[in-house]
Simulated scan of single mutants.
Amino acid sequence: MSNASGALYILSAPSGAGKTTLVKALLAQDNHVCVSVSHTTRSMRNGEEDGIDYNFVTQEIFTHLVDQQQMLEHATVFENSYGTSRQWVESSLAQGKDVILEIDWQGRDQVLAIFPQAIAVTILPPSQHALQKRLQGRGTDSESVIATRMAEAHSEISHYAGSHFLVINDDFTKALDDLQCIFTCRRLKTPQQALKNHQLLSELLSTGD
């Protein structure tokens, strides 16, 4: 991957930590960022659009993509398969876009094994109590489902050390600033800046002869 390419970011978080809302806000203020659209074998739901919410494919096609090593990561959840297209990610990076993958810690570890230069970020709630209140505040899940999500959250949180950065989503504005800072900091590294400002650097280093 050349210095001109974008960076691959892996964002992981327990359900209710606010990852989706943070990513949406980041996209609204940073036009150099895009989010990978996962492939899935599950049926399309009302209001969803193919290619926008997911790339909906048959199990046969999905299995073929996996066999051809065209998936950066993949998993089966409730008998449905989900995965990230390696070709799409590499194409987007080559165009200079920073790409976000919204996946769990297991997917994160799969991707880091293939793309060790990827940047992994874990987003956490400020407390278990706050997480439970957020899940209850959705008003869409029963208490038993919330209890299951809390157990899943504990598992997800326990793997935080596999990420390079931690963002605590207590105050939303600060959490968004922290997340943006991670993206901005990478772009300010010398190789990226040297490529972006090569004409300026050439001028500054000119002897004036």
Rank of each mutant, 00 (worst) to 15 (best):
W88Y: 13
A17T: 04
A94F: 03
D178A: 12
T41G: 06
G47H: 09
S163M: 05
D141L: 06
L166S: 10
R45N: 09
N31C: 11
N31M: 12
A28E: 15
D30L: 02
H64A: 15
L101T: 04
L179P: 01
L188N: 12
L124A: 08
M1G: 13
E156C: 12
G107F: 03
R86W: 10
I114V: 13
A120G: 00
R42Q: 04
P116Q: 14
T20E: 15
I123F: 10
K133P: 11
N197V: 00
R42I: 01
I146N: 06
L204W: 03
T207D: 00
E203F: 06
L188K: 10
I157Q: 07
L112K: 08
Q95S: 14
Q199V: 02
L65M: 13
R187M: 01
L124G: 04
L179E: 06
A118K: 09
R186S: 09
S38T: 11
L205S: 03
W105G: 01
S158A: 06
S15K: 06
C181K: 14
L8K: 04
V121W: 00
V89M: 07
K196W: 00
A25K: 14
I100R: 03
M44I: 10
K174A: 11
T63L: 11
Q70G: 13
G107K: 05
M71K: 02
G16W: 05
Y160A: 12
L176F: 04
T20K: 13
S91Y: 09
V23C: 12
V33G: 05
A13V: 04
V167M: 06
T148Q: 15
V37D: 01
E203T: 07
I157S: 07
E73P: 03
S144E: 15
N55Q: 13
A17P: 02
H154M: 14
I157A: 08
V33L: 08
F115R: 15
T40W: 08
Y160V: 08
S43G: 06
I10H: 00
T63G: 08
L200Y: 07
E79V: 12
R86K: 13
A130N: 13
I100M: 04
E48Q: 07
A161S: 15
H129C: 09
S15P: 03
Q192H: 14
A13P: 05
L72E: 02
E203M: 09
T190A: 12
Q59M: 09
N169H: 14
Q132K: 14
A118I: 09
G96H: 02
M1Q: 12
A151K: 13
V57K: 02
L124E: 07
A161Y: 12
P126I: 01
Q192Y: 14
F62W: 07
G18E: 10
D177K: 13
R134N: 09
L65C: 08
L176K: 07
Q59W: 08
Q106K: 02
I10M: 01
H74V: 12
A17Q: 02
A75L: 13
D171E: 14
V37K: 08
S12Q: 09
W105R: 10
E152Y: 07
G139R: 00
D50W: 05
H32S: 14
L72C: 09
E49W: 07
M71A: 00
T173N: 10
F56D: 01
D171R: 10
L93D: 04
L93A: 02
Q87N: 10
G18V: 12
Y54M: 00
V37S: 03
T173M: 06
I52L: 14
V23H: 09
K133S: 15
L22G: 01
